[in-house]
Structure formats: C-alpha cells, structure tokens
Design a protein around this nucleic acid. Structure first.
Lengths: 191, 191
DNA sequence: CTTGAGTGAGACACTCATGTCTCATGTGGG
DNA sequence: CCCACATGAGACATGAGTGTCTCACTCAAG
C-alpha cells in the first residue's frame, strides 16, 4: 500500500511544512526557501518537491489562510444573534489565524497586477454582509460603509497580531483591543 | 556660482525624485531602481548619483515620511483643545502623507533585525501622549492602551490610504472613515 | 567659441535567490 | 535479503536586480 503511506506522509508533512512556513514568514516575510526548509526541518530539495516554487508555497499559504478564515466565519455563525456578538465571535475564531493573515495582508499588496484569489472576495462579501446586517438592524452606524469596516477589521487584526508579536500588546488582550476599538466605532451611539 | 546652481538643482531634483519614488513605491513596493528612475524622468545613473543605492533611497523616504509626520503633528497642535479635536486635526494634517506612510508601514516590517529609525519612536511617543492626555481628561476610555491606539491609528491610516488607492473608498471620505471609526472606539461612551 | 558640469545610455561584473539536476543514504515493505 | 522510494546534500545554471564604470551629448556660463 505504498500509495496509502505516501498519501498519509505527504499530507502530514505538507501541513507541517505549511505551519512552519506560516510561522516563519509571519516574523520575516522575506525568508528564503532555504530558511523555510530549515524551519520545517527538511531540505530545500524536499521543500521544492512539495511546492513547485516560492510562488506555489505562497499560494498554498494563501489557500490555507482563506480556508482558516472561512472555517472561522462558519464557526462564528455570523447570521445568529446580534451583529456585534457575531463580530465578537468572529474575532475570537479568527485569532489563531491572525499571524498568517498579517503576512498575507502585506503580501497581497505585492501581487499588484496579477489576479487576486477569489477566496478573498468571498470572505469580503460575507463579512461585509455581516456589517450590512448590523446597519439594517440599527446596531451599526450607517456613515461607515461595510466595505470600509471590513477592511478596517482586517487591518486591525493584522496590526494587532504584529504588535502582539513585538510584545507591545499582551496576547491575552488581542480580542479585547480589536473588538472594543472596532465596535465602539461601528456601533451607533445611544444618545 | 556653480556651487549655488548645483545646490539648488540638487535640492529641487532630490525632492522631485523623492516624490515620484514615494508615489510609485506606494503603488508597487517592489519597484526596481530602473522603474523609480523612469517614474522620476531621470536615468538610473542619475538616480544612483543622488542616492547611493536602494537602501539609501528607502532611508531617505523614511526620513521624508518622518518629517512630514512631525510637521503634521506640529500643525495639528496636539496639546490644544479637546483630545478628540486634536485627533481630527492630526488625521487631517497627515492625510497628504498617508500614501507614503502606507508604504513605509509595510516596509518597516522587513527591517526585522536592523535598528529602526529613532524618528518613529518620537512620533509614537507624541501620539501616545495625545491619547494618554485624552484618557486623563476623561475623553477616552482607559481599557485601550495609548500604545495600541497609536498603532491602530497608523494601521487605519495605511489601510484607508490603500483602499482609497484601489477605489474601494472615496478619497473625500478618508478623514471621516478614519476619525469616526477610531474615535468611536477611543471615546468613552456617554451612558 | 570654449569649457565644464550634469546627464543619459549602455556595458560590465557581482550578488543572491531560485530552479534543476545528480548521487549517496537509509528506511520500510515485499 | 532485496528493492523501491523518499530524502538530504550538494553542484550547477539561470535570471533579476544591483552597483560601478565609461563615453558621448547637451547646455549654460565664461
């Protein structure tokens, strides 16, 4: 059953390599294939056998990040309860992927001309819908567009992940800092 | 008076080159020295004569960004009036530099090990002091640290500059989107 | 007109990450 | 035991960006 063992090992290794790469690239986004390989405990040759090149690796990380985000959105049950509670759940669920998102967030700006992965558009749409729902229910103010609130959410998540990594903010405050700052602005003030 | 003409021309050209480079690198942060030169309407040789290398160029842009920020802070008179008004003035004054800041914001994460320009620390300190003043005066909530509010402000500015560049947000809404989102969170709610 | 400084164009070598290749190892299954 | 296969180590070529240099041109000042 060589193909079973093969498949299993590949799957395990691939996942492990992706994790290591994500962790490393989060800290140093310019790491070389050599460094990524070392970090994963494998040789550059093996890394190259699993990912055709640096592009393929980054694309795979992008896929991973999108999958984790979508899983977080699912787990957060954005349609249930108040929109603010949904946002709280979302930030809670997405926190483990924050580091990876921080990397992809800056990396995506480099793709410039090339087409973006459609996954981001799907995520954007789902989160925008959440903010729109909050606006329509009267929870959120309407002078801040859903598109901007979505972008701001990602920006705050990436930024917070970065400052946590640098020790400027305690990791346990991640959720509080993001949610309170974002919702305070998105929530309509009770006058 | 060759040295006068020399000095004048260099000053003018240097500024113009920096502007072009900032504009280009804001859109495509991986632009080549060749592209930067083309964008400035000069040859790569001349570009090299003014800036020893890519590093020197980025450093110069960093200096420019810091200078513009400090000028904005000065013009915003952070010590006068309410802290929220000071924040509004700050965002207003800093808007012209937002694109450049967006570039430097992501670029700085690449410096990784190397030492950061002390200018950023000065800016951080001044803005943090503003948020602290707002907290002490009772305007801002105290569960969000000044350090985080400062980081969030920069993140929102960079992010908003980016989405404006991509047409997701109208340029005229730049100030409103940032200030309203940030202050809504930073301001203590009137219950 | 002549001179000189600044410039543009291009050639050149160098560095570095990347991608591809080969070969020896060793490990697990038949 | 033997074989297949994944791996690690390393050599090698490639391409891109960079830094340096030379040379011819232009234009303004003397």
């Amino acid at each position: 059953m060589s193909h079973v063992g093969y498949g299993c090992l590949m799957a395990v290794d691939r996942s492990h390599v992706l994790r290591s790469a994500a962790a490393l690239l989060t800290r140093k986004s310019t790491s070389t294939m050599d460094e990524v390989a070392k970090a994963a405990g494998i040789s550059r040759a093996t890394l190259h056998r699993q990912f055709a090149g640096r592009d393929a690796l980054v694309r795979a990380l992008e896929e991973l990040g999108i999958e984790e985000c979508e899983a977080a959105l699912d787990a957060a049950r954005l349609d249930e309860g108040s929109a603010s509670d949904a946002v709280r759940r979302l930030v809670r669920e997405i926190e483990p992927a924050a580091g990876l998102l921080s990397f992809l967030y800056t990396e995506n700006q480099l793709f410039e001309g090339e087409q973006q992965n459609e996954g981001w558009a799907r995520l954007d749409a789902r989160i925008s819908a959440l903010f729109r729902r909050g606006q329509e229910s009267g929870e959120f103010r309407i002078d801040l567009t859903p598109a901007w609130l979505t972008e701001a959410l990602f920006a705050l998540i990436a930024s917070c992940a970065w400052v946590v990594l640098n020790g400027k903010v305690a990791a346990k405050d991640f959720h509080h800092m993001i949610v309170e700052l974002l919702l305070g602005g998105a929530l309509r003030r009770e006058s």
